[in-house]
């Protein structure tokens, strides 16, 4: 009989231990689930912080770019036109008869300067990029490059244009600006094409130049491409999109960025 009792005791203890094991397992699993969720939330927050930081940096860069452009525009165009008008007007003497064609010319120069100032003021508007569509913002940027001369820039678009979130639009614009600056600074290109393809869920932008190109794989692998290429990749990733930089020596450079609308 003692053996039977021992067997029963052992069985009861075994059943309790098994139940306790499952109970503890359940509690540990819940804890682990909570731990994973907390970790994901932390990562998400870090991503969001990084995105916000990048957005702020992008805004500052765009602002800086705009100021630089304004300074150049005022110095090279408005300033020149007004200086010319001043010279023309200062040639008039009280005792001499009025030279009407010269006066008309001076007036036209002042009017042109005024026109230039108006368009500059439009560009200075605080929510400049936000109120534009990305296409309009890029068109304006292209106009600036064309004005400088020496380069053929074309913009093409496929599919119906869709609304992109303001923050993403700003970052995308900065990526395109970065690509264009790279072309102007390093590529020795004669033509640039910016292609927009509007898909159902995302926008693909391809910036292609016919410049000297470079070994993109090597540069990206060795991280010797400066901050420009890294910025393009990071920014595209932060918007939930992706980027591909393709270049070979002598074959030009193609940067493809895909960004979801939302």
């Amino acid at each position: 009989m003692p053996d039977a009792k021992e067997q029963i005791t052992t069985t009861i203890l075994a059943v309790i231990l098994v139940l306790l094991f499952f109970g503890v397992l359940f509690i540990v699993m819940l804890w682990y689930y909570n731990y994973r969720r907390r970790q994901t939330a932390r990562e998400k927050k870090a991503m969001q912080d990084q995105f916000d930081q990048q957005l702020m940096q992008t805004r500052l860069e765009i602002q800086e770019q705009t100021f630089r452009y304004l300074s150049e525009e005022i110095h090279d165009h408005v300033g020149q036109l007004l200086s010319l008008a001043k010279i023309q007007l200062s040639s008039f003497r009280e005792e001499e008869p009025i030279d009407f064609p010269l006066l008309k010319d001076a007036g036209a120069n002042v009017a042109r300067a005024l026109q230039d100032l108006r368009s500059l003021a439009k560009g200075l508007h605080a929510g400049h990029i936000r109120h534009f569509s990305i296409r309009e913002a890029v068109d304006e940027e292209v106009q600036r490059i064309r004005k400088a001369g020496g380069l053929t820039v074309s913009v093409t678009s496929e599919g119906a244009e869709k609304k992109i979130k303001d923050d993403k639009q700003l970052i995308l614009f900065r990526i395109i600006q970065e690509c264009l600056q790279n072309c102007l600074k390093h590529a020795s290109a004669t033509s640039i094409n910016i292609g927009f393809t509007w898909y159902a869920e995302q926008l693909r932008v391809r910036v292609r130049d016919d410049g000297q190109g470079f070994d993109a794989d090597r540069v990206l692998q060795l991280h010797t491409g400066g901050l420009g290429l890294e910025n393009i990749r990071n920014r595209a990733r932060l918007t939930g999109g992706s980027s591909v930089i393709y270049s070979r020596p002598g074959e030009g450079t193609t940067v493809t960025v895909q960004i979801p609308y939302e």
């Binding site: 969720r37 907390r38 932390r42 927050k45």
Partner: peptide
């Protein structure tokens, strides 16, 4: 108690520690 524990783990979306 299982119900409360499960709900607690699911509800804790504010990043607070279950422990």
């Amino acid at each position: 108690s299982c119900l409360v524990l499960t709900r607690l783990a699911i509800r804790k979306d504010d990043g607070s520690n279950l422990v």
